[in-house]
Design a protein around this nucleic acid. Structure first.
Length: 236
DNA sequence: GCGACAG
DNA sequence: ATCTTGTCGC
C-alpha cells in the first residue's frame, strides 16, 4: 500500500533521536488528529503488533475481512530497535517497523487496530494516533492495560463500558469485551469517533478478550521472531 | 518530593 | 515487552 499521509511529512521530518525531539514531534502531529467518523464501514481491518528479543524485533500486520474475520493479507518485517522504551514515547519504538510492514501489504486496510493507546495518552498522541496520522487511515487504540485516566468499574457483562477520564475530559473507554473478563482500554486513533471505536472493538472480539486483529498480529510477530532466532542459532 | 508509567 | 509451571475450566 502507499502511505499517502506520510509523504508530505516524511520528506522533511527527521526521525527524532532524543526524548525531547520525540515529544516535539508529538506536540506537532497531535494537531492533525481527527476524532470524528470519516469513511465508510470498514471491509478490511488490520491488526498490528511488534515482538522483541533484545534489540531484535518483528513487526507484523494482519488484515482480516470485517464480516468473516478471516485473514486476507499479512506482512511481517524483521529489524532492530531504534528507540528505547519510554512511557509516552512508545510509538517511536514501534512505528518504523509497522510502517514498513504496512507498505508490504497488497491490501490497503480500512481500519488499523493498534496494540496500545490512541488519545488516552499524556499528550493525547499515543501509537494509534501516530499511525493514523502518518498513514491517513482510520485507526483506533486497543490496549490491555491502563496508561492514563480514571474510570468507574464497567458492568460485568460483555459490551458494558465506562468513560476513561483525564481532567474532566473523556479520552477513551474501558470496555468489557467478554463476560467477567478484565476490560480493555479503547481510545480514538484517527478518523474514528470513540463510540464507533468501541463498537468496532466489540465486533472484532466475538470470543476472546482481545480483538481477533490483535491476536492474529501478536501470533504472527512472535512466530516470525522465534523463526528468525532459530535460523540465527543454526548459523553460529 | 515520591510513585506510577501503553509495550 | 519478557522471564516462566502448574492449574482451573470449557
Amino acid at each position: 500500500m502507499s502511505i499517502r499521509g506520510t509523504d508530505g511529512y516524511g520528506a522533511w521530518m527527521q526521525w527524532p533521536s532524543t526524548p525531547a525531539e520525540a515529544i516535539a514531534v508529538q506536540e506537532e502531529l497531535r494537531e492533525l488528529v481527527d476524532s470524528t467518523d470519516v469513511g465508510d464501514q470498514p471491509r478490511y481491518v488490520a491488526g498490528l503488533d511488534v515482538a522483541y528479543d533484545g534489540d531484535r524485533l518483528a513487526a507484523a500486520v494482519v488484515v482480516l475481512d470485517w464480516e468473516t474475520l478471516a485473514e486476507v493479507d499479512r506482512a511481517v518485517v524483521l529489524g532492530e530497535t531504534t528507540f528505547p522504551y519510554v512511557p509516552g514515547l512508545f510509538a517511536f519504538r514501534e512505528v518504523p517497523g509497522l510502517l514498513e510492514a504496512l507498505r508490504k501489504l497488497s491490501t490497503t486496510p480500512d481500519l488499523l487496530v493498534c496494540d496500545g493507546q490512541g488519545l488516552a495518552h499524556p499528550r493525547r498522541f499515543g501509537l494509534a494516533c501516530h499511525l493514523g496520522v502518518l498513514t491517513g487511515l482510520p485507526a483506533i487504540g486497543a490496549a490491555k492495560t491502563a496508561f492514563v485516566g480514571t474510570h468507574a468499574e464497567p458492568g460485568p457483562a460483555r459490551g458494558e463500558s465506562a468513560d476513561l477520564i483525564v481532567d474532566n475530559e473523556v479520552v477513551g473507554a474501558v470496555v468489557r469485551t467478554q463476560d467477567g473478563v478484565k476490560p480493555i482500554y479503547v481510545s480514538v486513533g484517527h478518523r474514528v469517533s470513540l463510540s464507533t471505536a468501541v463498537q468496532h472493538v466489540l465486533h472484532l472480539s466475538p470470543r476472546y478478550r482481545l480483538p481477533e486483529t490483535t491476536r492474529a498480529a501478536d501470533h504472527l510477530c512472535r512466530q516470525a521472531l522465534s523463526a528468525a532466532e532459530q535460523a540465527a542459532d543454526e548459523e553460529c
